[in-house]
């Protein structure tokens, strides 16, 4: 059987009919592969949560500053009703670089009434405020703030996340893909937070400190973004909880994170 005499030369215009037919088929199959690929990879993504980052839309917030254990602002909402807002810095950093000038001028800021213009991050009843300019932090007096209330010792399973991304800046802001970013945020001064789920499937958030209640950053990096079991003293501060842990006692769990 004599083979087809068609021979394709790229720099010549002619293309044989058999080659043309096959090429058309190849193009349609390729288009079909692209459409199927876009449908499969586009459709089967985990749904993102309705967390919010008010990027480019600054808000002025006033409240009493305290560091128990991380920089926070106790903001009055109504009579005897307050919200504890966690303060953060620009990018993957905590608020301290943006409070440095003020501390140098005013000394200890604990108990000072601050007015801060920043960008709000909020999800599931928790609010955080990103400060991107130290000039937008002002002292306007003094005020009272609450000390955390003890709730006893507990052992909990969950995932350690950085609250800046988890509560709105990134979606998803948890898990293996986001682990590097969470490590950088926490290393930069963002407080580490344990996310767990209660029996009613409600998420609970614990700001993590060392056993003495001091902030932890570097030491907790190997445990971020993976299912873990933590034991420690639990305290309550407004809508947040605080857990004082011994980092070396964190147990990594070989299972899928329950917060997904």
């Amino acid at each position: 059987m004599k083979r087809s005499d068609e021979f394709y030369i790229g720099y010549q215009k002619e293309v044989g009919p058999g080659t043309k037919k096959l090429l058309k088929r190849f193009i349609w199959i390729t288009v079909l592969i692209l459409l199927t690929g876009a449908a499969v990879f586009g459709f089967f993504q985990r749904p993102a949560v309705n967390s919010t980052f008010d990027f480019g839309n600054p808000t002025q917030v006033s409240g009493v500053y305290h560091e128990s254990p991380y920089p926070m602002l106790r903001v009055p909402l109504a009579e005897n009703e307050f919200k504890e807002i966690v303060l953060l810095g620009f990018g993957k950093s905590g608020p301290n670089p943006f409070l440095k000038d003020l501390r140098e001028r005013k000394g200890d800021l604990n108990g000072k009434q601050l007015t801060i213009e920043g960008q709000l991050i909020y999800y599931n009843g928790r609010t955080l405020l990103e400060i991107d300019d130290s000039q937008k932090v002002m002292v306007s007096g003094t005020g009272a703030y609450e000390q955390p209330k003890s709730m006893g010792t507990r052992t909990l399973e969950g995932e350690i996340i950085d609250p800046k991304c988890y509560f709105g800046v990134m979606k998803p802001g948890y898990g293996k893909i986001h682990r590097s970013c969470a490590a950088l945020c926490i290393l930069g001064g963002v407080p580490p937070v344990l996310v767990t789920k209660e029996e009613n499937n409600r998420e609970v958030y614990f700001l993590l400190t060392d056993v003495k209640g001091n902030p932890i950053h570097q030491d907790i990096l190997p445990y971020i973004g993976q299912p873990s079991r933590l034991t420690g003293q639990v305290k309550e501060l407004g809508e947040w909880r605080i857990m004082q842990i011994d980092v070396s006692q964190i147990e990594k769990l070989k299972k899928e994170s329950s917060i997904y």
Partner: peptide, 15 residues
């Protein structure tokens, strides 16, 4: 175009 359309239609909170 198809990936973006499907992503934002089926996952409206995604960034």
């Amino acid at each position: 175009v198809l990936f973006f359309t499907i992503s934002f239609l089926t996952n409206p909170e995604i960034i």
